Simulated assay, not measured.
Amino acid sequence: MQKPVRWGILGASNFAKGATGPAIHAAKGAKLVALATSSAEKAAGYQAFCPDLKIHSSYDSLLSDPDIDAVYIPLPNHLHVEWALKAMDAGKHVLCEKPVALKAEEIDPLIAKRDETGLLATEAYMIVHHPQWQRTKQLVEDGAIGDLVHVDGVFSFNNAEDKTNIRNRPETGGGALPDIGVYTFGSARWVTGQEPDTLTADITFENDVDVITRVTARFPSFSYNCVISMRMHPRQDMFFHGTEGVIHLSAPFNPNSFGPAILRLHQPNQSIREERFPSANHYVTQFEAFGDSVRNGTPFAWTFEDAKGTQAMIDRAYAAAR
């Protein structure tokens, strides 16, 4: 039997405590070994589901731990590049939360370091590991909706009252586009394999942070529009509209927590075929896929190059609006 990939987490974020930490613990071929935090209180939250967890008081201490094979980085956005590079320099495989960088060109050093070290290092873009998205990509490629004509999506929530949230702070790389625009942008790119030729954006800023964004773009073979917001009632939808059908994902980005993962295929005879994925956890499958790639060289579904393409689209949206 192959040894599990031994993981360490940099920083005791609430997101990692509630979602990705337990996912590492649950994933086949993965073992959560250590956490870097100086807070005993925060460490206790992790030890509640992983009692044997080793606690390091600093990030550097965790990176020097020989018992760790891979590092998961859920730090604030502006710290991602720095600590991903340090982790690779320490010989660790890296899975870094999105957005991995704040500008597309900042991803180039990560690509270079990954290639230099031969380590598996990439962005934690979990949705491509969910069967509803894998199925969507397959259906579009197989022509289930005919020729793809238009893609549109919405991802919104409202955190206006949470002023101290890192998403509402420019100094930590906040904003709706870095936080959730990566999903409406990246999912369309991943399913189609295309990049936008033209793009326009209308952005509402508060405290120099984008809070509502409306984007219209033209890809080589389809049109695209989306709404991304941190100031609107929660909504998640993605549509792929073709000449002979429509694919609708009603909980595309936070399945189960937002709603059930349902893929609806609207067909020419006006029938609707539903496919449901009630037991899928894309955080668990992401770490399982990462381990399979580390141990067996299996191609990983999302690379730094993929992340750079999405970040370039975000950069273009900012430039178009400003």
Rank of each mutant, 00 (worst) to 15 (best):
S156V: 02
F157M: 01
F157H: 02
F157Y: 08
N158M: 05
N158T: 06
N158E: 06
A160P: 09
A160E: 11
A160M: 10
A160S: 15
E161I: 08
E161W: 15
D162W: 11
D162P: 04
K163V: 14
T164G: 08
T164F: 12
T164P: 04
I166M: 07
R167H: 15
R167P: 01
R167N: 09
R167A: 07
R167W: 15
N168H: 09
N168Y: 15
N168W: 15
R169Q: 13
P170S: 08
P170D: 11
P170T: 10
E171S: 05
T172I: 09
G173I: 09
G174E: 01
G174R: 04
G174Q: 03
G174K: 00
G174D: 06
G175H: 07
A176E: 02
A176H: 03
A176C: 15
A176M: 03
L177C: 11
L177A: 09
P178A: 08
P178N: 06
D179M: 03
D179S: 13
I180H: 03
I180G: 00
G181F: 12
V182S: 01
V182W: 10
V182F: 12
Y183V: 09
Y183I: 02
Y183P: 06
Y183F: 13
T184H: 05
G186I: 03
S187N: 11
S187I: 10
S187Q: 15
A188R: 06
A188F: 14
R189W: 12
R189H: 14
R189Y: 14
R189N: 14
W190S: 15
W190D: 11
W190R: 10
W190C: 15
V191F: 05
V191K: 02
V191Q: 07
V191L: 12
T192C: 05
T192R: 00
T192K: 03
G193T: 00
G193Y: 03
G193F: 07
Q194Y: 11
Q194G: 01
Q194E: 08
Q194P: 11
E195W: 15
E195Y: 13
P196W: 14
P196R: 02
P196Q: 08
P196M: 10
P196N: 04
P196E: 05
P196D: 10
D197T: 05
D197M: 12
T198P: 05
L199H: 06
T200P: 05
T200Y: 11
T200E: 13
T200D: 12
T200C: 10
A201H: 00
D202M: 02
D202H: 11
D202F: 14
D202A: 07
I203E: 00
I203Q: 03
I203A: 00
I203H: 04
T204C: 01
T204K: 13
T204R: 09
T204V: 11
F205M: 03
F205A: 00
F205P: 02
